[in-house]
Design a protein around this nucleic acid. Sequence first.
DNA 1: ACCCAGGCGTTCT
DNA 2: AGAACGCATGGG
Length: 227
Amino acid sequence: MTRASILRLHDALLREYGNLGWWPADDPFEIAVGAVLTQNTSWRNVERAIARLKKEGNLCPSRILELDASELESLVRPSGYFRQKARYLKELARYVERELNGDISLMSSKPMDKVRTDLLALRGIGPETADSIMLYALHMPSFVVDAYTLRLLRRMGIRHERSYGAVKTAFEEALEGDVSTLANAHAMIVIHCKTVCRAEPVCGICPLANTCSEAKEKKEGVANQRS
DNA sequence: ACCCAGGCGTTCT
DNA sequence: AGAACGCATGGG
């Protein structure tokens, strides 16, 4: 995966989507909770769970710690895997409450590698969730590699490394480790995949058709059928 | 009645 | 290191 191929993809996305300024939440802890709840889950279901947590004012570390396990489970139920996720949220809340005086944003004053290691030590927080929290809640230059990113790379015909870390590093180096650029890049990938580039891509109308090899093939296929 | 969705942990080769 | 599996809800 070359630097040039990433920049070409980034330019194509930027022309189409511009600056999105994105993660649908206001406070950093809510962003972290959303990052956990959205694991292999549609955002629509996450919104329901978030709304239920907010309703009685339970979307903060202290209240999550006070809730019974079964109460928390029923609140996050709509987001699926609710027993695991309730446990994960308890663990996250306990860490934030004990180590950060209830304020997750205090992490942003620590070095990135330390923050990442600490997050990964929590049960239920793997590479993608840790990077989402770092990028969107803590405003650190940590690129998020998710299913959308890999799908788009494959569709664009960009050969990439197998490991999560290699793909992550390639984006961070190509985009020169700028927080808002990395955040916007990931946001654009998600928006693009959620709208035009779905499971069976409707590449005939794909705005990246000039850059995306899969879209190009599909377009030519349609053209050949007509002739 | 399927398949999928912004993964993670465990337990195998 | 990498593959297979369980976890669970709601929408298409």
